[in-house]
Nucleic acid binder design. Structure first.
Length: 576
RNA sequence: GGGGACGUGGUGCAGCUGGUUAGCAUGCCGGUCUGUCACACCGGUGGUCGCGAGUUCGAGCCUCGUCGUCCCCGCCA
C-alpha cells in the first residue's frame, strides 16, 4: 500500500511542489464533469485533492464514494488565487493526484459524517461512524490532552499512580453496586467499585503518601445527562495533609488546566460554606454565572401585615429579583405558585411598572414600609415556609429563570469551593441518618461534642468543587482513628457486627499506624464536558450508555447462555 | 418508581378538526458540466407512518397497551 508521508494537518504552503502520499477517508466528492475535487479527511485535518482528466489516475475516480479509505500520491500545489478556501486550514493548497489506491470501500453510512444533524439513537448504534465527526474527535482528543496534563501535573508533585481492584467488595453505604457473580465461589459476588475510597486510604496507611489514579467507577443508579453508570474519576489522596492542603492543591491543578488547555486565567477560587450557598443560592452547587441571589425578608416587625406570606415561628420569607427584563407570562408564574403549593410553601410575585406595584402580592406590600428596591419592570418572586424548603425551592426557580431567560449564554466559567457540608442527612426511607459524603469523612469534633443527640447539626470536613453549577468533584478529610470511625458507623446505624463484617479489615488497618490524610476526586467526564461546553457526558465518552443503561452498539446488557448461568450457580426468576 | 417530549423513505423534518395519491430537504442511482468547496442543473429510486390491540364507514392523526431514545423528579455516600 501507499503509506502516508504526511498527516493532513501537515499539508500546507511549505510543501508546494513536493510529492506526498496521504491516507484517509473520502469526506465528499465534487465531480464537475471534467475536473473532480475530493476532500480527504483524517483525524488531523481536511485536504482537497484534484483529479485532472489529463492524468491516468482519472480513470479510477468514478469508483470513489464517501467514506472510502484511500491512499493518494500527488503533488502539492498552490490553488489559483480565486480558488483559495480560507475556511480550510490547508485551503491555500491542494494535491494533484497522480496515484490512487482504494484501501477499503464503504457502504453509504446511515448517518452523515460531515453534518451535525442526527438522531442519537442511530448515532449510538453506529458509534464508530459518529466518532468520525469532527466535534466528537475534537472532544476525545481534548479529553486525552486533559488526562495527559493531569498525569504530568500529579507526577511532578510527587504523586504515584497506583491501580486498585475493579473486582471488589459490596459496601452497604452509598449507591447501588454493580455485582459480578463469582464462579470459583458460587453464590458469592464481587462488586464493582463506586470509587476506590477504601483502597486509597489503605494506600495512605501503607505509606504511599501521595496517590492518584485516573480510574473508572461504577454506580448502578438511574442516569441523567450528567451521569453515566460507569464514569471516570481523577482520584487522589494525600497523607499529612488537611483540608486547606487539598483545596490548594486541586485549585492549582484546575488553574493549570484552564491556563494550559483553555488559555483562561482562573483567579482565586472562592470558598463558600454549605450553609451560605444554601441561603444565597438555594443550592449546594450554585451556578455563579448569574446573580439573582436569594434575599431574606424574614422579620417579625411586619408579621401581622404580611398576610399569608408572614413567616411563622421557625419559618423564612425570602425572595429573588429577576436579573433580566424578561417578562414572565402569568402561566409561568402560576406554575411556580402551584409547584410551591405542592411543597407546602406559599408563593407570591409582584412587579413594578410605572412606579406602581402589580401582581399577586402587590396589595400586601403597598401599605408597608418594606423597600425591596424594585426598579421599574423588575419582577420579584417571594416565597414563605420552612426555611430549607424555601431555599431549595427558590434555588430551583433561580435556575429555571436563568434557563428561560438564557442568562448563562456565553458567560465565562465560574469556579468555587463549597465546604462544611452536613456530616449526616436523614434517610426517610430507612429511618436513619446516613453520611452525606461517605462514612469515612472526618466530622467537626467540636460539633460532635456540642450536639451529641442531633447528628443533623454536625458539620463535616468535606468539600465540593463546583464549576458552572456542576458538581465537579468532592473530597474530605478522612477519619484516621478506629474509635472515631466506629463512632460514626454507630451514628449511621451500622451495628458493631455489621461494621466488622463489612469493614473489619479497614478498622483493623487503623490500628497499625494510620497517618492523618485527606483526598479528593474529580469527575473527569464532567470536567471535560464543562471545558468543551458539552451538554451531555455522551459527547465526551467514546462509547457511552443510553439513559436506560444500555449500549446500543454492542447491545449490552444482554442475556447469557444457560450454561454460563449454571456455571455460576444462578437461576433466573425473570421471564426469558 | 413517577412526569414530560419524541418515534413518518437511508438521514433530517412537515403532515390541518380523522377523509381517500403521505409532502419537503438531503442522501442514493443515472445524465449534463474543467475551478468546485454543502458545486450547480436535469431525471429517477426509495415509506408495513416503532410494534400490538381498539374506536370509526375510514386512523400517520383519536384511545389503550408495549418497545426504544431524550429531558426532568425520586435515586446517585
Amino acid at each position: 500500500m501507499l503509506k502516508r508521508t504526511h498527516k493532513l494537518d501537515e499539508i500546507d504552503d511549505s510543501l508546494i511542489g513536493e510529492k506526498v502520499i496521504i491516507n484517509g477517508w473520502i469526506d465528499r466528492m465534487r465531480n464537475l464533469g471534467g475536473i473532480v475535487f475530493s476532500w480527504i479527511r483524517d483525524r488531523y485535518g481536511l485536504v482537497q485533492v484534484v483529479f485532472d482528466p489529463q492524468k491516468a489516475v482519472y480513470e479510477k475516480v468514478k469508483r470513489l464514494s464517501n467514506e472510502y479509505v484511500v491512499a493518494i500520491e500527488g503533488i502539492v500545489r498552490a490553488r489559483p488565487e480565486d480558488a483559495k478556501n480560507p475556511k480550510l486550514k490547508s485551503g491555500n493548497v491542494e494535491i494533484l493526484a497522480e496515484e490512487l489506491e482504494i484501501l477499503a470501500e464503504a457502504k453509504t453510512p446511515p448517518i452523515y459524517i460531515n453534518r451535525e444533524e442526527g438522531n442519537e439513537e442511530i448515532r449510538l448504534r453506529y458509534r464508530y461512524l459518529d466518532l468520525r465527526r469532527s466535534a466528537l474527535q475534537r472532544n476525545l482528543i481534548f479529553r486525552h490532552k486533559v488526562a495527559h496534563f493531569i498525569r504530568q501535573y500529579m507526577n511532578s508533585k510527587g504523586f504515584i499512580e497506583i491501580e486498585t481492584p475493579y473486582l471488589t467488595k459490596s459496601t452497604p453505604e452509598g449507591a447501588r453496586d454493580f455485582l459480578v457473580p463469582s464462579r470459583l465461589k458460587r453464590g458469592s459476588f464481587y462488586a464493582l467499585p463506586q470509587s476506590p475510597q477504601i483502597f486509597k486510604q489503605l494506600l495512605m496507611i501503607a505509606g504511599f503518601d501521595r496517590y492518584y489514579q485516573i480510574v473508572r467507577c461504577f454506580r448502578d443508579e438511574d442516569l441523567r445527562a450528567d451521569r453515566q453508570p460507569e464514569f471516570t474519576q481523577v482520584d487522589l489522596e494525600m497523607s499529612f495533609a488537611d483540608q486547606s492542603d487539598v483545596l490548594n492543591f486541586v485549585s492549582g491543578l484546575v488553574k493549570g488546566l484552564y491556563e494550559k488547555l483553555m488559555d483562561v486565567d482562573v483567579k482565586e477560587i472562592p470558598i463558600v460554606s454549605y450553609s451560605e450557598a444554601m441561603e444565597k443560592y438555594g443550592s449546594d452547587k450554585p451556578d455563579l454565572r448569574f446573580g439573582m441571589q436569594l434575599q431574606d425578608l424574614t422579620c417579625e416587625k411586619f408579621a401581622n401585615e404580611l398576610s399569608f406570606l408572614a413567616p411563622s415561628e421557625g419559618e423564612a420569607l425570602k425572595f429573588i429579583k429577576m436579573e433580566s427584563n424578561v417578562s414572565f407570562s402569568r402561566k409561568v408564574l402560576d406554575s411556580y405558585a402551584n409547584s410551591a403549593k405542592s411543597k407546602g410553601l406559599r408563593l407570591g410575585w409582584m412587579k413594578k411598572s410605572n412606579d406602581a406595584l402589580s401582581g399577586s402580592v402587590a396589595k400586601i406590600f403597598k401599605g408597608l414600609e418594606i423597600d425591596l428596591n424594585l426598579k421599574n419592570d423588575e419582577l420579584v418572586i417571594l416565597c414563605a415556609g420552612e426555611r430549607q424548603a424555601v431555599n431549595k425551592f427558590l434555588g430551583e426557580v433561580r435556575l429555571d429563570v436563568a434557563q428561560k431567560a438564557n442568562l448563562v449564554n456565553g458567560k465565562s466559567n465560574k469556579i468555587l469551593w463549597v465546604v462544611d457540608f452536613p456530616m449526616f442527612e436523614w434517610n426517610e426511607e430507612e429511618k436513619r441518618y446516613q453520611a452525606q459524603h461517605h462514612p469515612f469523612t472526618m466530622p467537626y469534633l467540636e460539633d460532635l461534642e456540642k450536639y451529641p443527640d442531633d447528628p443533623s447539626k454536625i458539620r463535616a470536613h468535606s468539600y465540593d468543587l463546583i464549576i458552572n453549577g456542576w458538581e465537579m468533584g468532592s473530597g474530605s478529610v478522612r477519619i484516621h482513628t478506629k474509635a472515631l470511625q466506629e463512632k460514626v458507623f454507630k451514628l449511621i446505624g451500622i451495628s458493631e457486627n455489621e461494621a466488622k463484617a463489612r469493614f473489619g479489615f479497614f478498622l483493623e488497618a487503623f490500628e497499625y499506624g494510620t497517618p492523618p490524610h485527606a483526598g479528593f476526586a474529580i469527575g473527569f467526564d464532567r470536567l471535560i464536558a464543562v471545558m468543551t461546553k458539552s451538554s451531555s457526558l455522551r459527547d465526551v465518552i467514546a462509547f457511552p450508555k443510553t439513559t436506560s443503561g444500555t449500549d446500543l452498539m454492542v447491545d449490552a446488557p444482554s442475556t447469557v447462555s444457560k450454561a454460563q448461568l449454571k456455571e455460576l450457580g444462578i437461576k433466573l426468576e425473570v421471564d426469558e
